[in-house]
């Protein structure tokens, strides 16, 4: 097992190196960071050349790549177009987004697996039909539609129903209330409890939106996997031995049926980031989505590079986790 884990970790290093090259090529092809300066006739040529030299744009791509990567491995991602350090901005955005994604993901897996198992155990019951129908529907829904529905219709109705139209309970804009500093003038932001409450009222709908479309995939997947284990030979053997049905389901079928879902969960990361960007846009969060959109629009290469490298690293890490989980859960993989 240790050797397997080490091998997977070692493969990740060349993968990261190649990914960094790919990311750099992508960002170089995103556009010219000095586009605005060049189109402005009032800016003298010399100033543009100076800026070009400062950003290193006058160097060949290989040199620029080497300059960037040799700093990046030390954790220095450089400065953005406005001379602010990149890493604190990305770190803040990443924190906001990860909070949302992880929360949604955990709840989605719990709900998805539970519904999938019940559906499979009671196959062709009304519960199964209803659950399968709903999850098919949600699975096909674009995240834009779900998030917009929750924001523009759901939140409005609930707040109206609670009689809180002036000071709505469910917030739909931003990831927290501003100002968030604890001052005597702003006692609402003081203490852990107030902070958590504020987070909960803001995060409720975005989490729900992400969760609704991701749970659907898990429940469909879990149902299929559970049906497969339920009809397998070892389940029949367990039943034949006279073990109670409950024990057969929980100990024999359920445990093994979790294997595929664990890997899907880890491998889905890229798709979830895509969904999170849309959700954040609808609810006006200032997370990774906003940062990405701004940096592409303004062509801010260093932010973009840092953003892409962080997500690429996340994807690689989650892939390794998936592989390791698979190996822990299914000994056949380890030996193969």
């Amino acid at each position: 097992m240790l050797r397997f884990a080490l091998r997977r970790l070692l493969i990740a290093i060349p993968l990261l190196v190649v990914a960094s090259i790919l990311v750099f090529v992508l960002v170089v092809n995103t556009g010219d960071p000095l586009e605005d300066m060049r189109t402005n006739p009032r800016i003298p040529k010399g100033q543009i050349a100076l800026q070009e030299h400062k950003l290193g744009l006058d160097q060949p791509v290989t040199v620029r790549y080497w300059r960037w990567v040799s700093k990046a491995v030390h954790g220095d991602f450089g400065k953005d177009n406005k001379d602010r350090p990149v890493w604190p901005q990305v770190k803040r955005a990443l924190f906001v987004t990860l909070r949302l994604v992880l929360l949604a993901q955990i709840i989605a897996v719990l709900i998805g697996v539970t519904i999938g198992v019940i559906s499979a155990v009671r196959q062709y019951s009304w519960f199964d039909y209803a659950a399968t129908g709903i999850s098919f529907f949600l699975f096909s829904m674009p995240i834009v539609a779900v998030a917009a529905f929750l924001r523009y219709i759901g939140a409005l109705r609930v707040n109206e129903w609670l009689g809180r139209t002036k000071n709505p309970l469910i917030k739909v804009q931003g990831d927290r209330t501003f100002p968030s500093k604890c001052t005597p003038n702003n006692p609402g932001a003081c203490g852990l409890r107030a902070g958590l409450y504020d987070f909960a009222t803001h995060a409720l709908l975005p989490t729900l939106a992400l969760l609704l479309i991701t749970y659907a995939g898990y429940s469909r997947f879990q149902r299929a996997s559970m049906l497969e284990t339920l009809s397998s030979d070892y389940t029949r053997t367990a039943r034949a031995k006279g073990i109670t049905e409950r024990r057969v389901i929980m100990r024999h079928a359920f445990r093994n049926s979790l294997i595929p879902v664990t890997t899907i969960m880890a491998l889905d990361f890229g798709a979830i980031i895509g969904g999170a960007i849309i959700t954040e846009t609808i609810f006006e969060w200032r997370g990774m989505g906003r940062l990405l959109i701004d940096s592409i629009n303004k062509i801010d290469p260093n932010i973009l590079l840092c953003w892409l490298m962080i997500t690429a690293t996340c994807v690689i890490v989650f892939n390794i986790i998936a592989d390791l989980l698979y190996a822990v859960l299914d000994p056949r993989i380890r030996l193969g």
Binding site: L15, V18, A19, L22, V23, L26, V27, N29, T30, G31, G270, A271, I273, G274, I277, L292, I296, N297, I299, L304, W307, L308, T311, A312, V315, I316
Partner: peptide
């Protein structure tokens, strides 16, 4: 194929079509 899957594809497309 593994490599292509590392970068979220919407992001890659967004970067490329900016030009």
């Amino acid at each position: 194929v593994d490599l292509m899957l590392i970068i979220p594809f919407q992001v890659a497309v967004a970067c490329l079509q900016r030009n």
